[in-house]
Amino acid sequence: MSILEYNGGCVVAMAGKECVAIAADRRLGIQLQTLACDANRVFRMHDKLFLGLTGLMTDITSLHNSFDFKLNMYSMREGRLMSPQTFSSLVASTLYEKRFGPYFSEPVIAGLNKDNTPFLCAMDLLGAAAYADDFVVSGTCAESLFGTCETFYRPDLGPDDLFETISQAMLSALDRDCISGWGVTVHIITPEGVTAKSLKARMD
């Protein structure tokens, strides 16, 4: 089993019309043993920028701490918030810094640009970024998520429809993966604000 699959977990993000959604499962396990079903792998960096991290839990925590610090330093130095594009470059360079002893975590970045157009980006553990304008996936059930997203996704959805779409895509994919699941959190990011909802999935 790959070290990226040691703790389990997955993240998906989708773009709508002037909104983005990011969803993650809540399981924390050690291989096939479930430890907790209230794990958090999606983090608010600021009101229009969210970071989802899959992979090894210790590296998720380390990376989250490090990005929180770097973002705080940036906003104090510059007196403004970091744009999603800049943040994805920061994440990529932070990961590539450890090229030969990497953090075992694959990030997903979802946010709104200055003009409220959606921004989506996914990376591998070395920081090779892939930008998308529909959806990005990461984690132990990435393959299933690609399938469900391809099926359910429609362009230019409003916040409510986007929530429904990402939730269905996530729930369908989770049921085919035994090291992800145990509930889902969905964040919908709009220019007006962020709504967080939690879903019940199959609790086994």
């Binding site: 794990a39 090894l56 839990m57 210790t58 925590t61 380390s62």
Partner: peptide, 25 residues
């Protein structure tokens, strides 16, 4: 708080570590 050698940290209402976790959890 649950902590393992990798640095996984999680707050839990109850927990166990080692082989006993298989029975005790």
């Amino acid at each position: 708080f649950y902590l393992d050698y990798l640095g996984t940290l999680h707050k839990m209402p109850f927990s166990a570590q080692g082989y006993c976790a298989y029975f005790i959890l």
